[in-house]
């Protein structure tokens, strides 16, 4: 048997194993994270989240207001990276990365909301989301994809 063929088969085998591993583990982790987010969002539903610059529903001056923030960085998986690189040949929607960005933003937002709740506040206004290029894809296109989100807002106690 040709030595080159053996090396080719081994490298193809490793890629295949990683692909299957990424698909199974990555998907399980993503679904578990989504369920966790759904539950936490439901639990924190009474917190009024707005992007308005003033204090909707009025703020109780006795409790003041404070800056709260959250951040989250989520890794991609081998399957997502592979699916995206295939999709990039034809162009269009990269669904696998959409959910990744979505998870990072929701997780960061929930951390901010939970921080506000812990401090006894029931509303956060002027919520601002910001992406961070932590992987270095902005300066190096070869860098691995990574979803990073930071979010901040002003927590206050509703007057009504």
């Amino acid at each position: 048997m040709n030595a080159d063929l053996v090396i080719l088969l081994i490298s193809l085998g490793i890629s295949f194993v990683l692909l299957v591993l990424g698909w199974i583990v990555g998907r399980a982790r993503e679904q578990a994270h989504m369920r966790d987010l759904d539950a936490r969002e439901a639990a924190a539903r009474e917190v009024l989240l707005t992007g308005l610059r003033s204090f909707p529903l009025g703020a109780d001056p006795r409790h003041g207001a404070v800056l709260v923030s959250g951040e989250c960085v989520i890794a991609t998986d081998y399957f997502k990276t592979f699916a995206a690189s295939l999709k990039k040949i034809f162009g269009g929607e990269l669904t696998s990365f959409e959910t990744l960005m979505d998870r990072a933003r929701r997780e960061a937002t929930m951390r901010m909301v939970e921080q506000a709740r812990q401090m006894g506040y029931d509303a956060v206004c002027n919520v601002r989301l910001e992406g961070v290029d932590i992987s270095g894809t902005g300066t190096n296109p070869q860098a691995q994809a990574m979803a990073a989100a930071t979010v901040f807002g002003t927590a206050y106690k509703r007057a009504v």
Binding site: L18, L21, G22, V25, G26, R29, E30, S69, E71, C72, V73, I74, A75, T76, D77, Y78, K80, T81, E107, V132, I134, Q144, A145, M146, A148, T150
Partner: peptide
Amino acid sequence: AAGFKNLVGGELHGYTELLTEAR
């Protein structure tokens, strides 16, 4: 560590911490 995490997915706690500290 992130290179390995990028195979199977999940949160990169080290980087999240980095962002928190930086902010």
